[in-house]
């Protein structure tokens, strides 16, 4: 971290990402420098965040929605800068750590946008409890986890676009430690409109997606 200097600085080009975050954290003492540091931070990372958000969310948010999400993520950075945990002097690692933190903010905003529909009336049908929160503990540790991750990634690639979208929407309700809430009827309605189909069909697509994943894992995961 740089030494504390709260005087106005015209240029932050040569400062590290974590230094920029530090200057942002001093916004109460020196708002101008904090905003200049933020602008430099924005310029460095906007392209990356736009690209990964486009890749992940364009099919559901569209171009303008993704732009909104990215801009809102950066606005949150200035508000939440005190929550960032620095990792040190390795610039590559620090940059990746900063982008991972940005990713968490963006994912949370996206998933919050799904959850914050105005009609939170839960459906009474079983398009519902997605998660039984059982921790995976194996004696082989990370190696097994990595092998399993690889197989799950392969399994995900077998899904169609519709199955993918509906699976992502299902996991939007994932709440570690408490299990998953039921999907609000409003979200189901949005999925119905998006795919021009019925609620029953949405449920069938979701069920088929899970079935395909599980069948793939049964056929290919030999490590459990």
């Amino acid at each position: 971290m740089p030494s504390v200097t709260c005087t106005s600085r015209p240029d932050f080009n040569s400062d590290s990402d974590e230094d920029l975050l530090f200057y942002m954290s001093m916004q109460e003492e020196d708002r101008t420098s904090a905003e200049e540091a933020w602008a430099e931070f924005y310029a460095r990372h906007e392209g990356y965040l736009l690209a990964v958000c486009n890749r992940a969310f364009n099919s559901s948010l569209g171009d303008l929605g993704v732009q909104d999400l990215v801009q809102e993520t950066f606005v949150r950075v200035l508000k939440k800068v005190h929550t960032y945990k620095p990792v040190g002097t390795d610039a590559n690692h620090a940059r990746a750590n900063v982008r991972a933190w940005l990713g968490k903010i963006a994912n949370n905003l996206y998933l919050s946008s799904l959850r914050s529909r105005p009609l939170i009336e839960y459906t009474d049908d079983p398009f519902d409890t997605v998660v039984d929160q059982t921790t995976v503990e194996t004696t082989e540790g990370h190696a097994v986890e990595s092998d399993m991750l690889s197989v799950v990634r392969d399994a995900l690639r077998t899904l169609t676009d519709r199955e993918r979208e509906i699976l992502i929407a299902s996991y939007a309700w994932y709440e570690p430690g408490t299990g998953c809430k039921r999907m609000p009827s409003e979200e189901l309605k949005i999925l119905k409109e998006r795919f021009q189909t019925t609620a029953d069909n949405i449920r069938q697509i979701r069920s088929r997606a899970f079935g395909k994943l599980e069948q793939y894992l049964q056929d290919h995961a030999t490590i459990l």
């Binding site: 990964v52 890749r55 992940a56 990713g103 994912n107 996206y110 997605v130 998660v131 039984d132 929160q133 059982t134 921790t135 995976v136 986890e145 399993m148 991750l149 799950v152 990634r153 399994a155 995900l156 690639r157 993918r164 699976l167 992502i168 996991y171 994932y174 994943l213 894992l217």
Partner: peptide, 16 residues
């Protein structure tokens, strides 16, 4: 449960 792996795999695949 493989939900954690599914979420992790979704991120790795660029879905999140």
């Amino acid at each position: 449960s493989l939900d954690r792996e599914v979420l992790q795999a979704m991120r790795a695949e660029g879905w999140l």
